[in-house]
């Protein structure tokens, strides 16, 4: 279980993770904001579709890829939260079909 030991002083922002609003600290990494709220699955594995989660937390494994504000392939461990940010699990696998949404 992840837990925060953060000193309680900074500005708070609200982001959504898979549609659920969560509170986060401004400047916190997207990964830590997710993980502290129990959302540890970042993406699906490309072939098997299995759950994946952050592994290195320093930008070299690319396991933490999420979609941020509709843009896929964002590294949750490197990106910082900002007010209103919408984060979703990256579902793209080898067999995902595009919808016509967003055209």
């Amino acid at each position: 279980m992840f837990q925060s030991l953060r000193k309680p002083e900074r500005d708070r922002v609200t982001i959504t993770v898979n549609g659920h609003p969560i509170e986060a600290i401004a400047g916190q990494s997207v990964w830590s904001a997710m993980a502290l709220n129990g959302q540890t699955i970042t993406r699906r594995a490309a072939l098997s579709g299995e759950d994946r989660s952050a592994y290195c937390a320093m930008g070299v494994c690319f396991e933490c890829l999420v979609e941020i504000d509709g843009l896929p392939n964002q590294q949750a461990c490197l990106r910082r939260v900002t007010e209103g940010m919408a984060v979703t699990t990256q579902e793209i696998t080898e067999t995902t079909e595009a919808t016509n949404a967003g055209l």
Partner: peptide
């Protein structure tokens, strides 16, 4: 070449 995209 790109990372995987939904098939479009």
């Amino acid at each position: 070449i790109t990372a995987r995209m939904p098939h479009f």
